[in-house]
């Protein structure tokens, strides 16, 4: 019976560890995506750092912009233009337009995603409305800038990068 007890306690330890492992997958997943850049999440860098990048005038990359306002958010949301030809290393600015069509104030959170996922490591922003939550009062409209820079180290075989924003209703997570 003593042998049974010690085996049972060892197995219970395994069970508890595996429950913890399930939760450990959450930060591990973020870390893995961060290192490999496959999660499609964009980076944030300081304006001064971005200004020091070498500009690769010989190379042209097409950046496409798409936007979606998800079903729980009564907003209009679109970029001012659909695509832009850019040189890696140079800072560009593009405006997004958002309008709250409801009469109530709503908090929204934009989530960026870059395709192909491997390009996301090289897609950095110095300013973005997605860095914080946005609040629009009833019927309010707003132009919001995104300032971005593509790292000159972007792999040679990538010619087109798509930046997509999904705006979610974040009333539940409002920070104030």
């Amino acid at each position: 019976m003593i042998a049974s007890k010690s085996l049972v306690s060892k197995l219970l330890v395994v069970v508890v560890c595996m429950f913890g492992f399930g939760y450990a997958l959450v930060p591990l997943y973020d870390l893995f995506c961060d290192i490999t850049g496959i999660g499609g999440k964009t980076g944030q860098i300081e304006q001064v750092v971005a200004a020091q990048e070498r500009i690769d005038k010989d190379r042209v990359v097409t950046v496409e912009f798409t936007s979606v306002s998800t079903s729980g958010l009564p907003w209009e949301f679109r970029p001012e233009k659909n695509k832009l030809k850019v040189h890696p290393g140079e800072i560009y600015e593009i405006m997004y337009f958002a309008k709250n069509n409801s009469s109530q104030s709503v908090v929204g959170q934009a989530i960026p995603s870059v395709t192909p996922g491997l390009a996301s490591k090289y897609f950095n922003k110095t300013e973005c409305f997605c860095f914080t939550q946005q609040t629009l009062a009833g019927k309010e409209q707003k132009d919001m800038p995104v300032r971005f820079i593509i790292d000159p180290d972007l792999p040679e075989d990538i010619h087109t990068v798509t930046l997509s924003y999904s705006f979610f209703n974040a009333q539940k997570y409002a920070q104030n």
Partner: peptide, 8 residues
């Protein structure tokens, strides 16, 4: 090994 992960 895996039932606790699903529970999580």
């Amino acid at each position: 090994a895996v039932m606790p992960v699903f529970a999580g």
